[in-house]
C-alpha cells in the first residue's frame, strides 16, 4: 500500500459483482470520507443511486440511466459519459461528469452541484428545484423547463425553448440561444449575477469570465391567470 492510499479505500468491479450488491454496500456500510472506486460501469443503470454519506466515489467509465440519482452528501465523479437522468432529484453533494450527459441531466434536483464537462442533451435541469448545474458545453432544447429554483450555467450554446415556463431559477448562457421558451426573458446582469457565476465557475474548475454570460429568468407573466389574455394562458 502506498502512502496515498488510505486503509479504508475500496474498489468494486462491476464485471465481477452485481450492481445491487454494490449499491447496498454504498447505502449501509460506508464511512465518512471513504474513497470508493467503481470499475467497469459499462453503461449500467442506477449506479450509485441513493447515496447518503459524505464519501468520494469515482465511476471509472460510462454510466447508464440515473447515475448518482437522489445523491445526498456524496462527491461523485464519473470519468465518462452518462445516460438520461444523471443526478436526478439530487438533494446535496456534488456530481461531476467528465464526458457528456444524455437527456434530463439534473432533473428535479433540490440542492448540490452537478457539473458536466461536455454537452448536456435536451431537458437539462428540467423542473430544477434548487440545485446548481454547470455545463461546460452546450445544452439541448427545453433545458430549464419549469425550473423552480436553483442556477444553471451553460458555457456553450442553448437549444430551442430555453427556460420555458421558468419559475424562480436563473439560467446563465455564454454562447448563443436558439430560442427562449414561453415567459423566459433576457435580463440585465447584476453584481449578484457576476458573483454567482464567479462562484459556480470556480467550483466547476472553469476559467470563463462571468462577463461573457447572459442572464435568463422568468418574465413572471405566467404566474397569475390573466382573464384578459384571451384565454392564451
Amino acid at each position: 500500500m502506498d502512502g496515498l492510499t488510505r486503509s479504508n479505500d475500496l474498489t468494486f468491479d462491476l464485471a465481477q459483482m452485481p450492481l445491487r450488491d454494490v449499491n447496498q454496500f454504498l447505502h449501509h456500510n460506508v464511512e465518512s470520507g471513504q474513497k470508493i472506486t467503481i470499475l467497469n460501469p459499462d453503461g449500467a443503470h442506477n449506479i450509485a443511486v441513493g447515496l447518503d454519506a459524505p464519501i468520494d466515489l469515482d465511476i471509472a467509465g460510462h454510466a447508464g440511466y440515473y447515475a448518482a440519482g437522489m445523491n445526498k452528501l456524496a462527491n461523485v465523479t464519473i470519468a465518462g459519459n452518462v445516460g438520461p437522468g444523471v443526478a436526478e432529484n439530487m438533494m446535496s453533494g456534488r456530481v461531476h461528469v467528465r464526458g457528456f450527459a444524455s437527456v434530463a441531466a439534473g432533473a428535479s434536483a433540490h440542492s448540490g452541484l452537478l457539473v458536466i464537462d461536455g454537452d448536456a442533451s435536451l431537458r437539462c435541469g428540467i423542473s430544477l428545484k434548487g440545485a446548481d448545474i454547470v455545463v461546460g458545453g452546450n445544452v439541448g432544447s427545453f433545458s430549464g423547463f419549469m425550473a423552480q429554483a436553483g442556477r444553471m450555467v451553460v458555457c456553450g450554446n442553448a437549444g430551442d425553448a430555453l427556460g420555458d415556463s421558468l419559475y424562480e431559477a436563473i439560467i446563465y448562457v455564454r454562447g448563443d440561444i436558439k430560442s427562449l421558451g414561453a415567459d423566459a426573458q433576457l435580463q440585465p446582469m447584476t453584481d449578484t449575477d457576476y458573483s454567482t457565476l464567479e462562484e459556480l465557475l470556480t467550483k466547476a474548475e472553469l476559467t470563463y469570465s462571468p462577463q461573457e454570460f447572459k442572464r435568463i429568468a422568468s418574465a413572471k407573466q405566467l404566474y397569475h391567470w390573466n382573464a384578459n389574455a384571451h384565454q392564451e394562458y
Binding site: D42, G43, A44, H45, H62, G64, Y65, N81, G83
Partner: peptide, 11 residues
Amino acid sequence: VAISSEFRSLA
C-alpha cells in the same frame, strides 16, 4: 460504426 439505444450494449 455501432449504434444502439444504450451504451451498455456497446461496452
